[in-house]
């Protein structure tokens, strides 16, 4: 049984089983997200897709739409909270956009522009996260990891390899690979894996193609993340 809900005051139809985010997208309304991906079940960790329903904050990627819901999304209050979540993601890792190969193709960077994030606000953590350049075709730069687990999920559920996993807890949580040595080269990871091109930020980078497209001419340099998402379905 589907129905209709109000999204920022506008009616949005939905089908049974659709989440708020899915139904809103289908109706042409963008909700920011990082850990959500159209090809995967909802994960609900980044919280960028937070919306208010009946005064309560919920993850729109995970909550099934219900008839008559009133959803607030693109409001100063919610966008302010999203901006703070982005600031948190920036300060907990080491994100240095000007030298990052992913600049212009990075969803974290693009969302920061989208939501007018002009400073990091909080004190940086400067964590020590060595890179893993062992694999012949791919570089892992853990400094940029936002723990969306898309690589974990893609490798486990699509590639059926289980190359990636998270260990540690809390702020010490970190990505590891499936090898006693801890090196990507010692796993069965391949550049053709689904997990190789799923990272929304700059952790999993292909070697030898860096900066082939100059910064300034990349996906989110040309158009905002909301229009890319809505027009190209990405």
């Amino acid at each position: 049984m589907g129905g209709k809900f109000l999204f920022d005051g506008r009616p949005v139809p939905f089908e049974e089983g659709q989440t708020i985010l899915q139904a809103a997208r289908a109706a042409g309304h963008y909700i920011p997200h990082l850990c959500w991906h159209p090809d995967f079940p909802p994960h609900g960790s980044c919280k960028l897709c937070v919306v208010k329903v009946g005064g309560r904050h919920v993850s729109s990627c995970a909550l099934p739409a219900r008839d008559g819901m009133e959803v607030e999304s693109n409001t100063p209050e919610i966008n302010g909270e999203r901006r703070a979540l982005l600031q948190m993601l920036f300060v907990e890792g080491n994100h240095f956009c000007p030298s990052c190969e992913k600049s212009g193709n990075c969803q974290l960077q693009a969302l920061a522009y989208e939501l007018d994030m002009s400073s990091a606000r909080f004190a940086h953590f400067y964590p020590d996260r060595p890179v893993d350049a062992s694999h012949p075709d791919v570089l892992l730069d853990f400094n940029r990891c936002i723990f969306c687990e898309l690589c974990v999920r893609a490798s486990r559920d699509v590639d059926h390899k289980g190359v990636f996993a998270l260990t540690g807890r809390g702020i010490r949580k970190h990505l590891v690979v499936n090898a006693e040595s801890g090196r990507l080269a010692d796993t069965d990871f391949a550049v053709s894996d689904r997990a190789a091109d799923i990272c929304p930020v700059g952790v999993i980078l292909r070697k030898r193609v860096g900066f082939a497209v100059p910064i300034g001419e990349r996906k989110y340099d040309e158009a905002s993340i909301s229009s890319v998402a809505m027009e190209k379905g990405e």
């Binding site: 948190m88 809390g170 702020i171």
Partner: peptide, 17 residues
């Protein structure tokens, strides 16, 4: 901060901040 599982951004980073 010690006990946060680290799954979601607000708790993982927020408790540490």
């Amino acid at each position: 901060a010690h006990e946060s599982c680290g799954f979601c951004t607000p708790c993982r980073v927020g408790t540490a901040l």
